[in-house]
Amino acid sequence: MDVILFLVFAIIAVLCAINVVVQTHPIASALSLIGVMGSLAVLYLLLGAEFIAAAQVIVYAGAVMVLFVFVIMLLNAGEEVHRGRSFVVQVLGAPLLIALLGLLVYFAQRLFPGAPMVRFGAFRGGTAVAVGRALFTQYLLPFEVTSVLILIAILGAIVLARKELD
């Protein structure tokens, strides 16, 4: 059952990801991206990380993508215009992509040779309690540094977007 669900949602995620690139309209691309986020959330859920799954949907599929869609609608971005692809891209694009993926797999294999296979349901640290405890004990410094970083980004955005009052 777990494996079937994993396959279904992994395939949906990959198809949606391809669709993000293939679609010519920005709204369609953005919605495919939501599909990717949603299926990723289901994959997290299958792995036993229910809090991360919920956060994924709330933050990425909910908040971030709503802003994307909002901006696309507001700017009324039209369809992408296709120009002819260059000869190099047409010939070398697919082989180079496959080579890159192959290299990634090879290095993953080299770096973690004896890594155990993932077993569904084996991981138990995904509850809100466990995540919270880890964040505020083991990963306190990275957590705080990240929040300060985000705060700086927000301030920067405000400073950049502020109109001069004159």
Binding site: F51, A63, V66, T127, A128
Partner: peptide
């Protein structure tokens, strides 16, 4: 056991 978060997630998808 994430019931509240589930409702928040679903309702945030309703905007679309």
């Amino acid at each position: 056991n994430i019931g509240v978060l589930f409702i928040l997630a679903v309702s945030s998808m309703g905007v679309y």
